[in-house]
Design a protein around this nucleic acid. Structure first.
Length: 261
DNA sequence: ATGCCTTTCCCAGAAAGA
């Protein structure tokens, strides 16, 4: 079984590349982030011929997460209990949904960016991660294979950014963000680190500007956090760098994980 | 990168991204 996560930066802008990628990478389950469409506008008809059913949770212009599966799609839950909102608690964004796909349960996440450590968005990010920890705790300690995967917008360690010095004072690397990720792992989750394809680190994101991809100026912020039942079944994990190349890519590459369940 | 792209809203330029 093959599972994957990919921040597509607009599912409509990426549709030809998404369909191509599904056809050749052939994942059984894919978590998408930043679909940037309403539920009604998700192009489910374009992935159905490849065998995928779709569960989508969308806002419209921003955010938007999905699970695509060709091995069953059940018990879909949009959002999570205790999910904080932004800019106020009454405004819940479309940043996570969970689904059961055959033998595995997955949760697709698009963690808030945080903007700057002084911005209210950063406090929101920390609250959101705390709510995520509570939301996944039962699945994390359960016997059924489970993974929470997506764009966490946090680099777990200094090795997960191209130049730690360049990130001084920035979000994505602060001790508080990393502590929240650590607390999340403490629920029983393992970081499934992809193998290194090129350069010293398995980065998953590169800025569009200044040729960052070709200069190796990346970050590892797209993560697969697996419970024990799923982690012990992993036979391989990698970043599909090919998907970041060429014309019209997302700024993120997919992370692919193979399982022997 | 305090905006060297890209995407959305919708047709101009702001907001957001990390």
């Amino acid at each position: 079984m093959r599972i994957a996560t990919w921040n597509v930066n607009s599912v409509l802008a990426r549709l030809p590349r998404l369909v191509d990628w599904l056809a050749h990478a052939a994942p059984d389950v894919v978590c998408l982030q930043e679909t940037k469409v309403d539920d009604g506008a998700f192009p489910a008809g374009d992935v159905a011929p490849l065998g995928y059913a779709v569960a989508h949770h969308g806002d419209g212009r921003w955010n938007g997460v999905a699970v695509l599966s060709r091995v069953g799609l059940d018990d879909v839950v949009r959002g999570m209990p205790g999910e904080p909102g932004f800019p106020d608690e009454g405004t819940i964004e479309a940043r996570t949904l969970a689904a059961t796909c055959g033998p595995v349960r997955v949760r697709s996440v698009y963690v808030p960016n945080g903007r700057t450590p002084a911005d209210p968005h950063y406090a929101y990010k920390l609250r959101w991660l705390a709510a995520l920890r509570a939301a996944v705790a039962a699945d994390a300690s359960g016997a059924r294979p489970f993974a929470v995967m997506g764009d966490f917008n946090v680099a777990p360690a200094d090795a997960d950014v191209w130049d730690p010095a360049a990130f001084a004072g920035s979000t994505h690397v602060t001790p508080a963000e990393r502590a929240e990720l650590g607390a999340l792992r403490e629920t029983g989750l393992t970081d499934v680190v992809p193998r290194i394809a090129k350069g010293p680190h398995p980065f998953t994101y590169w800025d569009y500007r200044a040729g960052a991809f070709h200069k190796g100026m990346g970050m590892r912020i797209d993560l697969v956090y697996a419970n024990a039942a799923l982690a012990r079944s992993v036979t391989g994990a990698w970043v599909d760098r090919e998907a970041r190349k060429g014309k019209g890519p997302s700024d993120h590459a997919p992370v692919v994980v193979d399982l022997s369940l």
